[in-house]
Design a protein around this nucleic acid. Structure first.
Length: 719
DNA sequence: GCAAGGTC
């Protein structure tokens, strides 16, 4: 019997060929650059095997010609528009290979990853192959790790494809397209009508069920920081200066068990009690062994967080580098949710490969010589890939690639070694009926910390105390502190939030962050060595706009995506049909769309009308700029660098020559847009271009690019 | 000119 096996990606087709053939296979090139066909006999099932693969999803979906153009229909119609499935141009050679191979085969065995997407990719493969051979027998190989015993078992005991899982994915694909396209077109068109700067067709104001909750997290944290008001608090500070074995006159600070109090009078009266007691009593001294746990096996999400926090590389960058190292054979597959190693995992061989490294070779040797300790087990297993680990020793890497490889290898070595061990002393003290404590730590065995410098565990000594002993505190004061501002959102924080809330997957989280940056919704800001994410005016405007609309389920919060996820699980469990899921969800989004469109118009115009009332005279500061060649307007205004965005489609570079104050009297309530058009009218009659300085007019256009003194100068003032 | 999910 001829069996055609199709895996999800090249790496898997190669591994299963090696395992099933015992290394005895022939390789054949295909018209696709990355894809090869492997052929061999598999006597265990009396078959001749051809193993090939696809490269992720084989087909894509889009609207037909009648709905594809932006002006071909009202955005609302997209919800009921048909959707076409087709093989994308760059996948034609893969399709062709499948057709050729299926024609010669009796059985098609699907070897895609054992997850929902894999089940759907399997269905895509089946659809193509059946076109070449209608009655081909279809089976599915099920495996949870690329380990010889499991792969043989999968080949010999294949199961059926799970249509329900494929259905769930198909529903999600359709929904994401319809919702994304409808809302994107609606948002973009409304904003373009109100803000001339957005008339540029390149600036799409996209909506997506993952990118908006992602943006929502950034805006939420920004608001928290912005609205923060520092609060004073009070606490009792108690310390004793006493010699320890290695230091002289070291201060031991005792922490107040109550932490701190926000009520000053309460703190004062408690402090009075303490003051009335001249001596502090040691009521308990506890000494016990303590551990600092070694890290968990590495998943993609953890790698991206660490990359951002410790290596200062953007999540997308970390993933790109890992992908490259994986293709060079240095790393295992870098997209995994699994944080537990299979019990049969061959640690010894992999550790052996690291023993030659100048930096950690000695440590790796100590692990192979009996120091090995089984890695901790996390709670996640995607049943397709092991945790990320080095598969070969890499000697000649430099720069960011070296940083990433070093981190992954040290992490793997740390996972295979022992927890760090220490000795902790806690001294509990009572004084004036208030309780205090101090702790000391002695690090005994650094163990995994030796090879994992990314974790810190520093011991601090504490003098000897005995239970019942009394002492007079060196300092006993009521001190005042204040709550400190929360920090802005870092990339690592955002990855954590997305992961926790189920926004995106290990492979897409980084992309969604990149998208909201590319769309100018979010700006990256370096502060010292840390990169923070702050929302642009446009980003804030969009999120607050949707929040003001007051839908009972916000389009900017993770809840809707969670519901989509829940529906998919129901479809997988066969408690809901794909048709029902589509119907229910589309009805829900249609309602939201209608409200959102109506209110969006309102919100956008509100943003504008608050500016100039009827009969008011306004002074607008104008920068008079000499028009030169293409580009954006830039120049100096009152000693400040000025940069203005592209103007009305026509790109100009202008040099600021002088500042004019223009008086305008407004017979009717006037929006800033009207004001803007009025000025453009003046502009067109001169050879010079007068540019209103971007005050409120351009609230939605990255005013961050303008220096702040300018914004102050250019307030639209009422007389 | 729209999405998110695979993957190269």
């Amino acid at each position: 019997m001829r069996v055609l096996c199709v895996a999800e990606k090249p790496s898997i087709s190669k591994s299963i060929s090696q395992i099933l053939s015992g290394g005895q296979f022939t390789t054949h090139a295909t018209r696709s650059q990355y894809i090869k066909n492997y052929e061999f006999d598999y006597p265990q099932t009396n078959s001749f095997y051809t193993v090939t693969c696809v490269s992720g999803h084989l087909t894509g979906c889009d609207f037909p010609e009648t709905h594809r153009k932006w002006n071909s229909c009202d955005a609302f119609e997209l919800f009921d528009a048909p959707v076409e499935i087709s093989v994308a141009g760059d996948k034609k050679s893969i399709e062709e290979n499948l057709l050729n191979q299926a024609r010669r085969a009796d059985m098609l065995m699907i070897w895609t990853d054992c997850d929902r997407e894999g089940e759907h990719i399997g269905l895509e493969i089946v659809r193509v192959c059946k076109r070449a051979k209608r009655n081909i027998v279809v089976k599915r190989a099920r495996f949870s790790a690329i380990i010889a015993q499991q792969i043989h078992h999968a080949a010999q005991r294949p199961v059926e494809l799970d249509r329900a899982q494929a259905d769930a994915v198909e529903a999600r694909i359709t929904l994401d397209l319809k919702v994304g396209a409808a809302f994107t077109r609606m948002q973009t068109q409304i904003l373009q009508n109100h803000f001339v700067q957005l008339a540029d067709t390149r600036s799409v104001v996209s909506y997506g069920p993952c990118q908006f909750p992602t943006l929502g997290f950034v805006v939420q944290k920004w608001n928290l920081v912005k609205s923060f008001v520092s609060e004073p608090f009070w606490y009792i500070f108690l310390s004793l200066t006493r010699n320890t074995s290695s230091t002289r006159g070291e201060d031991t600070v005792f922490t107040w068990k109550r932490g701190h109090l926000f009520a000053e009078d309460a703190a004062v009266s408690l402090y009075d009690f303490v003051l009335s007691d001249p001596l502090a009593r040691v009521i308990k001294v506890t000494k016990k062994g303590t551990k600092k746990w070694k890290p968990l096996p590495l998943t993609t999400v953890e790698l991206q967080k660490a990359g951002s926090r410790l290596l200062r590389l953007a999540p997308k960058k970390v993933l790109d580098i890992s992908e490259k190292l994986y293709q060079q054979g240095f790393l295992s597959y870098p997209r995994t949710e699994t944080d537990q190693f299979d019990p049969q995992f061959d640690f010894h061989t992999l550790l052996q490969k690291q023993t030659i490294d100048p930096a950690w070779g000695v440590f790796a040797t100590s692990l192979t010589d009996g120091g090995f300790s089984a890695p901790r087990k996390g709670k996640n297993n995607d049943k397709a890939h092991p945790p990320i680990h080095p598969t070969a020793h890499a000697a000649n890497l430099v720069g960011d690639e070296k940083k990433v490889y070093d981190f992954i290898t040290r992490r793997f070595l740390a996972c295979c070694s022992k927890d760090a061990e220490g000795w902790q002393t806690t001294v509990d003290v009572e004084c004036g009926e208030e309780f205090f404590y101090a702790t000391g730590l002695l690090v005994l065995e650094r163990n995994y910390l030796e090879v994992y410098p990314y974790d810190k565990w520093v011991g601090h000594e504490i003098p000897d105390f005995e239970e019942g002993e009394e002492f007079q505190p060196s300092v006993c004061e009521l001190r005042e502190g204040k709550t400190s501002k929360p920090s802005l959102l870092t990339e690592a924080d955002l990855v954590t939030l997305m992961d926790k809330n189920g926004i995106g997957t290990d492979a897409t989280i980084a992309q969604h962050i990149q998208t909201i940056i590319d769309r100018d919704y979010v700006i990256e800001k370096m502060e010292g060595n840390t990169k923070y994410l702050i929302p642009s005016k446009l980003g804030i405007g969009l999120i607050e706009g949707y929040d003001k609309i007051g839908l009972n389920k916000s389009l900017s919060k993770p809840q809707l995506r969670r519901e989509t996820e829940r529906s998919m699980v129901q479809v997988c469990e066969r408690t809901k049909s794909k048709a029902d899921m589509l119907e229910e969800t589309i009805v829900q989004y249609k309602e939201m769309f209608i409200i959102a469109r109506r209110e969006f118009e309102k919100v956008v115009s509100m943003e504008e009308t608050e500016k100039v009332g009827a009969g008011e005279v306004v002074v607008v500061m104008m920068a008079v700029m000499a028009v030169t060649e293409e580009g954006a307007a830039e120049g100096t205004l009152r000693g400040v660098e000025v940069e203005a965005p592209r103007h009305h489609g026509a790109e100009v570079v202008a040099h600021v020559e002088e500042v004019a104050e223009v008086l305008l009297w407004s017979p009717t309530p006037m929006t800033i847009s009207t004001l803007h058009r009025h000025q453009l009218h003046v502009v067109e009659r001169t050879k010079q271009r007068q540019v209103p300085i971007y005050a409120k007019l351009d609230l939605l256009i990255q005013p961050e690019k303008l220096p702040s003194p300018l914004q102050v100068d250019s307030q639209v003032c009422r007389i």
